[in-house]
Amino acid sequence: MSRLGKRQNQAWFFLAPAIIVLGLFLFIPSIISFCYSFTDFNMLAPKLAAFVGIANYLKLFKDPIFMKSLKNIVQFVAFVLPIQVGTALGLALIVNKKRPFNMFYKVAFFAPVVVSLAVTSILWMYILNPSQGILNSLLAKVGISAQPFLNSSKQAMFAIIFLSAWQACGNQMIIFLAGLQNIPKSLYEAADLDGAGKWATFRNITLPLLKPTTVLILTTTFIDAFKMMTQAMIMTQGGPLNSTMTPLYYIYRTGFTDRQLGYASAMSVVYGFGIILFTIVQRKVTRADEGSGQ
């Protein structure tokens, strides 16, 4: 331990800014979520807030929109995770090989990452416009009839899934690429000498050695996907027929737009704990997995 250790009180001087900010904007909001969740707090009439026990919690499990939003987000995660991560791996494998125009490919696959979610959302609203959008015009060229996309409760979520994967997968491609380049070349040379085919080399060398990278990407993408909100907010406002309503957006609508902070807090607590639980279980599983893999 350094001699600075003796001057322990000075540590608080360096910690203070972080403690104040995290305290005000992370810890206190977490705690008041709990407190508000047992009240009927309304932002318009904060003085009238009364203790209502667990009424909010009972209400939310009977709230069809909240339940629908949970179903929607599970659908979103279930599709976006394999599509996004699978595409990212494929793209990384493509650009990892020396090819003509390789730099161009890398830039092309990564370009959507640079576009913010707000820009992505608005841009795709125009692309997907049923009557004047470029996508339907292009589909018409190959003989596919015009699709309603965001106007359809069946297609809207899938449209959001695809454009979300389009926007983000370049990021994961870069991480996969870093993982691929960490695999020692000598292993491939040895496999080549042994006469191993391309598929065998991929299955027995690339995939196993890429596993830590894959686990990292899967876990971060998984948790992030549960927080989807901006796309739904800008593109569909949760519609049509709540088919793209996500839990975070519903919490925002209830607590911020409709000012029912008490009820929204109950949802924050339930959904927040859900995500925390997922995160912890996932870390336990990946850690146990890594232990047995050695």
Partner: peptide, 20 residues
């Protein structure tokens, strides 16, 4: 506490943050 706070999804408590 700091490490534990990493698992707290900040987006779920935006409206309470707004209240602060």
């Amino acid at each position: 506490l700091l490490i534990a706070s990493m698992v707290v999804p900040g987006d779920t408590i935006m409206i309470q943050k707004f209240q602060i």
